[in-house]
Amino acid sequence: MPNLRVLIQGEFIRLNKYNLFAANFVVLLFWVFLAWFLEGEVLRQFIPVIFLMDSVMMTILLVGATLFYEKKEHTINSVMVTPVTENEYLLSKILVNALNSLITVAFISLAVYLIKGVTYNYWLLVPAVLIVTVVHTLIGIRLSYSAKDFTSLLINYMIYVFVFVLPPVFAQFGLIDASVARFFILLPPEASSILIGTGFVEVELWKILFGYSYLALLSMVLFRFSVKPKFNEYMMKEMGV
């Protein structure tokens, strides 16, 4: 994959030039601002939510925004007539988001340590954030290629939130029966929440093993059977079908 490094560097330059980094940074500052007012156990419960929101929601929005600009400016046509392969192109999107999530982990962790002296298990948090970001980058790409425009992407995004994010939240408030709620680990955001939680609380080993295996398998299945075919379909459309 000789072009991967160039694609990743190019992607970072564009995130900066298109002000998407700036937007992301403002959100991070907002999280730090909120953390400033929290103390003790509440703060410790809040920090994993930041990482979950960033690696799930922000990842989908960030990849959606970059693909929206690529669609709008038709730049994918130019990239696809260079020696870049489809795999390199898609992998660059995944890696850029993964690196971006690591930057978030470093920034938030440093901030909450400096202002509140809070530490947690970074060794368990980092791999969890990475796999969660990979899955949600793929979901973001898939949602983007199904969307006609940015509004349509936001609608897809909201549907995803309603279907996959809200049920576990309802379960926490007792609105959904526990017998049903135990299957929510199959929802990517819930599996993500469990894995990110490992950096902060003790989690049963089977849940950790299941979470990693499930998200890794989901990533592979999404990449092979959903994202790549949709990418090809999108390219055909872009080429004037």
């Binding site: 564009r14 030039k17 298109y18 600009y69 400016e73 038709h74 730049t75 046509n77 130019s78």
Partner: peptide, 9 residues
Amino acid sequence: FEMPISFSK
């Protein structure tokens, strides 16, 4: 290509 294609920013 016929249409102008570039990263606008």
